[in-house]
Design a protein around this nucleic acid. Structure first.
Lengths: 154, 154
DNA sequence: CCTTATCAGTTTATATCTAAACTGATAAAA
DNA sequence: TTTTATCAGTTTAGATATAAACTGATAAGG
């Protein structure tokens, strides 16, 4: 009985497990989302905007499509979120050929430097229920899931 | 060096880990959400409605507030989702004192019986990247997080 | 050169979710 | 009894997300 075998054809029990995992995951995620937004409210930023800020700040210059891929969301969603962030003066969109290249503005970088460390600390506190070893385990499991799913999509 | 000690004061490295965990989690969650909705579309049901259907079907009778607590969402959200589901004829809301008691209608139960097993199978397939042992591990870690967070909220 | 395909981003309609203010009914306290 | 508090649910405005149809520009093929 290899690992491959146990994971190739899900048993009735594993099916239940899948549903349980989904419920747990979605509850924890929603809770975490709510808390993160409450935490970031002090700086007038949402968790979505924070995620975008980090991605652009870390990888700029990048296009809207690349950003959407990194965040696993649709490009339509990015159009909306970036529209708001441009309005707020954090992000600059520069048309190049048929792409739009994203960079942070001065005030975007200011915000980045102001909140990234704080949000890192906050996010760490959300996972305090696990010790370092368990946190690594969780990251590992999520990585495996991601890899498998990417493989599935082709 | 006890577990308690390792988890009481997050190191710089653990802070980064927190952010990484958040990113992984939110990406996997969003992807999973999208796929589930695509899968359920065949029956004209969304994943939110499915979650509500399962909770009522499993725990009826229960009130809107109890439902919101089980799903970790706000009661305002439930008002909206249940309004739609009542309109679709799946759920019955019965005012009792100041509470509204929820039960599934006949067609709600029909839907329940039609899709729960199918969605269980689908959900299981989303976690195929992990073998049974790893799936249990993941469930365990999520449980721990939940417990710690509930403890935090008082 | 002209036509067709593809690609990046936008738009629209719809669903989900929140926070915060509100309604109305019951319960508790005066 | 009258007032006040609490509780369950609703409403509203706003953010986030999707799918699907669309626009307009570039690239490829005839």
């Amino acid at each position: 009985m290899t690992d491959k075998e146990t994971s190739s054809l899900p048993s009735r029990h594993e099916e239940r497990l899948g549903l349980l995992l989904w419920f747990r995951l979605s509850r924890f995620y929603n809770q975490s989302l709510r808390r993160s937004n409450a935490h970031l409210k002090e700086w007038g930023v949402t968790i979505t905007q924070f995620d975008v800020l980090v991605q652009i700040g870390t990888h700029e210059p990048l296009t809207q499509n690349e950003l959407a891929e990194k965040l696993f969301v649709t490009k339509g969603n990015m159009t909306q979120v970036l529209g708001r962030m441009e309005e707020l003066g954090w992000v600059h969109r520069d048309q190049e050929w048929r792409k739009k290249v994203l960079t942070l503005t001065g005030s975007g970088w200011e915000l980045f430097n102001l909140i990234v460390t704080r949000q890192e600390q906050f996010q760490a506190s959300q996972f305090q229920g696990l010790n370092k070893e368990e946190q690594k385990q969780l990251l590992d499991l999520l990585r495996k899931l991601q890899q498998y799913n990417e493989h599935m999509e082709g």
